[in-house]
Design a protein around this nucleic acid. Structure first.
Length: 406
DNA sequence: TCTGGGGTCCTAGGACCC
DNA sequence: TCTGGGGTCCTAGGACCC
C-alpha cells in the first residue's frame, strides 16, 4: 500500500490571525511586518493586500508605496504560536505522525488512516473544516505519496486549496508544472536555467544525473534530478545533526560607531549564551557577521578547543573577530553573532529555574550581574545598559517574524 | 523597489597528517 | 629529489527557505 502524506499550510497565517482577532480588519489589506518607514520587510500580508502586488519579503517601504491605506501591523509571535499549537493539536488528532516544519506548516503521515478518516480526499476535507470550525483559520492541503510532492501540491491552489496527487502520478504531475514551482530552485538557479536554455520541466528531465551534477554540483545535481521527477528528497526527512544559534540586527541607519557595535555584540553574546544554556546545548565555534552599507556581507569565525562557557570569552572573541572583519571606517548596516556546530551539552539545563515569561528579566539581570562582576571594565558601563526599545514599531524596531510563502 | 531575522545545506580551498 | 592520494578539521561565502 502506498504512503499518504499531507502537507498543510496555514493561508496568509499572520495576517489571518490579525483579521480573526480584529473583525474590523476583515476584507481589508493587512500587512504584518516591519515598521513602514524603517528598513524591514513584509512578513505576511492578507490576500486583499496581495491584490496591490504586495508579497512576503518585499521591502516595507515598497509595500507602503503600493498601498498606503493598508493596515500595517507588527508581528505578535506569541499569539501566532498559540494558534499554531492549537492547529497542530487538530493535526495530531487525525494523524499518528505530525512533523511541524515551521510555525505555519506541517507534514502529516496519513498512511493507513483510511478506516478512520476515509479516502485522502475525505480526510483532507474533514481536516479543513475542523481547523476552520475550531480556530477560524483557513488551510491549504497537498496530498501525495511523498513529502516533496505534497509540499508542492499544497502551494498550488491557495488559499483554501486541496490538491491530490495519486500514486504513480508524481512524475506526470511535476512535468505539467512550470519550472518556477520547483521547490529548492530559487532565483539564482532559475536564472541559470534560463542561461542554459532549460525553460521547461521537460527540458530539465531530459538531462541525466551526471550532466546535472556537472552543471549544478554534486548535491545540487542529484537534488534537481530527483525533484524534477517528483521523487522524495532526504531534505524533508533527515534529522539535522549540526545546528546553530544566532542573533542579528539591522541598524535604522548605517553606523561607524565602534562602541555601538561592541554594545550590540555584548547583548547578543549574552542572549545567545543564555539560549544555549536553556536548550542544554554547547558550542566551540563563534561566528561574527557584518553587512556593510553596500550590502556586501562577510563573516569571520573562530573555533576553540573547548566549549564557550562565559560571556567574557564570547565577548573577547567577538571583538577579535570584529577587528578581523572591519576596518573601523566602513559604515555597517547589520551586525550578527552566532554559535555554530552546536551540540547537546553534557550538562542539560534545568528549564524550571527560568520560566519562559521571566526570560527577558533574567537576561537583563544576567547582564547587570556581569556589569558588577567587572566585565564593565572591558567596556564603558553606559553601553552595557543600552538596549533597544520593545513594544512594536511605534517605539522601536519590530521583530519581523519569518516570512510566509505566497 | 534599496533589500529582516532565524535557520539549513553545500562548495572550495588550505593546513595537517599518514 | 620531487611528488601520490585520502582523510579530517577549519574557514568563508553563497543559495535557499519560512
Amino acid at each position: 500500500l502506498s504512503a499518504v502524506w499531507f502537507h498543510v499550510d496555514l493561508d496568509a497565517f499572520f495576517a489571518s490571525v490579525e483579521q480573526l482577532d480584529d473583525p474590523g480588519l476583515r476584507g481589508k489589506p493587512v500587512v504584518v511586518g516591519a515598521s513602514p518607514g524603517g528598513r524591514g520587510v513584509v512578513s505576511t500580508c492578507s490576500y486583499e493586500a496581495r491584490a496591490f502586488g504586495i508579497h512576503s519579503a518585499m521591502p516595507i517601504g515598497e509595500a507602503w508605496r503600493r498601498c498606503p491605506t493598508a493596515v500595517f501591523l507588527p508581528p505578535r509571535m506569541e499569539r501566532y504560536s498559540e494558534l499554531s499549537s492549537r492547529v497542530i493539536e487538530i493535526f495530531a488528532s487525525m494523524s499518528p505522525e505530525v512533523s511541524p516544519v515551521s510555525i505555519d506548516e506541517a507534514f502529516l503521515d496519513m498512511s493507513g488512516t483510511g478506516l478512520l478518516w476515509g479516502s485522502p480526499a475525505e480526510a483532507a476535507t474533514t481536516l479543513k473544516s475542523r481547523v476552520r470550525g475550531e480556530t477560524g483559520l483557513c488551510i491549504s492541503v497537498g496530498v501525495a505519496p511523498n513529502r516533496y510532492v505534497a509540499k508542492i501540491a499544497s502551494g498550488l491552489r491557495k488559499p483554501d486549496g486541496l490538491v491530490i496527487v495519486e500514486p504513480g502520478e508524481e512524475a506526470a504531475f511535476m512535468l505539467a508544472l512550470p519550472l518556477s514551482k520547483l521547490w529548492g530552485a530559487g532565483e539564482k538557479t532559475q536564472e541559470r536555467f534560463r542561461d542554459l536554455g532549460i525553460l521547461t520541466m521537460a527540458d530539465l528531465v531530459a538531462l541525466d544525473e551526471r550532466q546535472l551534477s556537472r552543471l549544478f554540483g554534486e548535491a545540487g545535481g542529484s537534488y534537481l534530478y530527483r525533484a524534477a521527477r517528483g521523487a522524495d528528497l532526504p531534505l524533508f526527512g533527515g534529522k539535522t545533526a549540526s545546528k546553530s544559534v544566532s542573533a542579528e540586527s539591522t541598524f535604522e541607519n548605517d553606523i561607524v560607531d565602534r562602541e555601538a557595535l561592541e554594545a550590540s555584540l555584548l547583548e547578543m553574546g549574552c542572549s545567545l549564551l543564555y539560549r544555549l544554556w536553556q536548550g542544554g546545548l554547547s558550542s566551540r565555534t563563534l561566528v561574527l557577521k557584518l553587512r556593510l552599507f553596500d550590502f556586501t556581507t562577510l563573516s569571520r569565525r573562530l573555533t576553540r578547543p573547548l566549549d564557550y562557557g562565559d560571556t567574557n570569552k564570547v565577548l573577547a572573541d567577538a571583538l577579535e573577530l570584529l577587528d578581523r572583519a572591519w576596518n573601523g571606517k566602513t559604515p555597517v548596516r547589520l551586525i550578527g553573532l552566532a554559535f555554530a556546530d552546536v551540540t547537546d551539552s553534557a550538562a542539560p539545563a534545568q528549564a524550571e529555574l527560568f520560566p519562559p515569561e521571566d526570560r527577558r528579566k533574567k537576561l537583563e539581570a544576567a547582564i547587570f550581574g556581569l556589569e558588577k562582576k567587572g566585565i564593565a571594565d572591558l567596556r564603558p558601563a553606559r553601553l552595557i545598559g543600552r538596549r533597544r526599545r520593545r513594544g512594536g514599531w511605534m517605539g522601536g524596531e519590530p521583530e519581523a517574524g519569518p516570512t510566509d510563502p505566497q
